[in-house]
């Protein structure tokens, strides 16, 4: 078993140019590898090229240059029926759900099965099983207009899952949903990933989504790959400006504090650590007080994530002790300098 078997997608110098006025380079020389079984995030600001990128993964978008390999096959070389077959192994869900509004939940799922050539007699059972997975059994005969946004996305997931795909491509699948429902959908996707071993590719502009469920993430900025790696690594130590902009809490206004000559550090912690009164403990056990410049904790998918920007004491010795203390706890992110939007 070589590594190759574990790679589901390999993008090799993928470039996409929209000719026209203005000429847009939507993807600029992107090379990434996506492992089977991962939840892979693709994050970037609006217009970064995320949708374009995900659409090259099932060739809804033709690449201008470079190659997309899906399970070792060059997508560009697939013709007609072969391409359609490959697309059936890659379910897709969208921000706007894209359900057939004139058809019931059941019929919406059935149409996917029909296209995949599943015989009529087998469809009802599969539909039932899919609805059970997404928890919508009682909505089988409802129309999309009778469903909430979260429920619609569940139907879309059931539809994408019905043909037993290897991967599910999600383009901003939770962006139209409120935070509570977002968590539910993310949990569902995580469950599908774990239990059915379906690779999931999540396009998003929200770091919280990536933190919640992704294993790895690619940061896209202006069509270029800014950074790629394990989510934890990028969250703790973002190297590119694009990643920093996404990782740092909004409007921290660090530049203001830098003027006071204090050293600032960013603390990053996961759910368990976040609950511990780290700052209070530092004060009680070491007698060192630090001031919190910004704190931002959020719960995504039931797991708390957070970060804090704190200013260290001016005393260098004390500052050092505090830094060591944070490092020991594994929450030390990095020293941050004057940085503004």
């Amino acid at each position: 078993m070589a590594d190759k078997a574990d790679i589901i997608y390999k993008l090799d110098h993928v470039t996409k140019v929209y000719e026209g006025t203005p000429r847009v380079v939507a993807l600029d020389d992107i090379s990434i590898t996506i492992n089977r079984g991962d939840i892979y995030g693709i994050i970037g600001m609006s217009g970064a090229g995320k949708s374009t990128l995900v659409r090259t993964l099932n060739r809804l978008e033709e690449v201008t240059d470079g190659t997309v390999f899906f399970e070792g096959k060059n997508l560009k070389e697939l013709r007609g029926a072969e391409l359609r077959k490959a697309r059936q192994s890659a379910g897709m869900i969208f921000q706007g759900f894209n359900l057939l509004n004139q058809k019931t939940v059941e019929k919406n799922i059935e149409v996917a099965l029909k296209i995949a050539g599943v015989p009529k007699g087998k469809r009802a059972e599969i539909i039932g099983r899919m609805l059970k997975i997404v928890g919508l059994e009682e909505k089988r005969n409802a129309y999309p207009s009778q469903l909430s946004g979260g429920q619609k996305q569940r139907v879309a997931i059931a539809r994408a899952l019905a043909t037993d795909p290897k991967v599910i491509l999600c383009d901003e699948a939770t962006s139209a949903l409120d935070p509570g429902i977002t968590s539910e959908i993310l949990e569902l996707l995580k469950k599908i990933n774990k239990e059915l071993n379906v690779t999931i590719i999540m396009i998003t502009h929200e770091m919280s989504v990536v933190e919640a469920i992704c294993d790895r993430v690619a940061v896209i900025d202006g069509g270029k790959l800014a950074e790629e790696g394990a989510v934890r690594d990028i969250f703790v130590n973002p190297k590119s400006d694009a990643a920093r902009r996404l990782v740092y809490p909004e409007h921290t206004g660090l530049g203001l504090f830098d003027g006071q000559g204090r050293k600032c550090v960013r603390l990053v912690f996961n759910g368990v650590e976040a609950k511990e009164p780290i700052i209070a403990k530092l004060a009680s056990s070491k007698g060192i007080e630090v001031s919190i410049l910004s704190a931002n904790t959020k719960s995504v998918g039931g797991i708390g994530f957070g970060q804090m920007i704190i200013a260290l004491p001016e005393d260098e010795e004390k500052g050092h002790i505090a830094t060591e203390y944070f490092k020991e706890l594994g929450v030390f992110g990095e020293e941050v300098e004057a940085w503004q939007d």
Partner: peptide, 9 residues
Amino acid sequence: EAALAMGAD
């Protein structure tokens, strides 16, 4: 878009 993604001709 959804139809094409499903592999519809």
